[in-house]
């Protein structure tokens, strides 16, 4: 039986190919749903900004439907929304993504997953991508979300919560910490 090819870091020199033009603009004016801006940061274990990270995002549309043939939930695909984003961090380790808030997605069995975005982090020094999820602080369904429930430590659960901007609605702050005392929860998929 073939074995999965071994991962390697993206290294520091991927910028000419991987970050697509407008890769951080996942939704346009015609996309259904609540437009949001995610203001993200990527930090290392000593809280230094990671200026050569690449972030990929994958999410359902406003109706909770993925643009993929295996999503057989009822609900419609929004032709203006693929649900994929890819953006490189800047010199301050910051990135900006414009998208819409995803709807809730069916979980296993009869469970429902609260609105969330799948996140992959790639960088020099990261041999295999790190996988996490972004949830929305105070979001509907967070308290019943089966994936959040897997994280026993409530303080660690907080690392997955994007925080609303205190001044401007629709703007969400999300910090990824690849190590250190406030290390983000990462998943084995």
């Amino acid at each position: 039986m073939p074995i999965e090819s071994g991962w390697a870091t993206v290294g520091p020199f991927f910028h000419a190919v991987l970050p697509w033009k407008d890769g951080g603009v996942m939704a346009g004016p015609e996309t259904k749903g609540e437009p949001i801006t995610i203001l993200g940061r990527v930090l290392d274990a000593e809280e230094n900004p990671i200026n050569d990270a690449l972030i990929e995002l994958w999410q359902a549309n406003a109706g909770g439907k993925y643009n993929h043939p295996e999503d057989t939930q009822s609900g419609e695909i929004d032709p203006s929304f693929q649900g994929f984003g890819r953006v490189a961090a800047d010199a301050e380790g910051s990135f900006t993504v414009k998208t819409i808030k995803p709807g809730p997605v069916r979980g296993l069995g009869n469970s429902w997953q609260a609105p969330h975005i799948q996140i992959s982090v790639f960088a020099r020094g990261v041999l295999k991508r790190l996988v996490t999820r972004l949830y929305f602080e105070g979001g509907p369904g967070n308290e019943h979300d089966p994936v959040l429930a897997l994280i026993e430590d409530e303080e660690r659960r907080e690392t997955l919560m994007a925080k609303p901007d205190p001044k401007e609605s629709g703007r969400w702050h999300f910090t990824l910490r690849l190590g250190g005392p406030r290390e983000t929860v990462f998943f084995d998929v």
Binding site: D44, V126, L178
Partner: peptide
């Protein structure tokens, strides 16, 4: 400085 030390959670 770029490697999580806490165990990954199986999703």
């Amino acid at each position: 400085l770029r490697s999580p030390r806490k165990p990954l959670i199986a999703l």
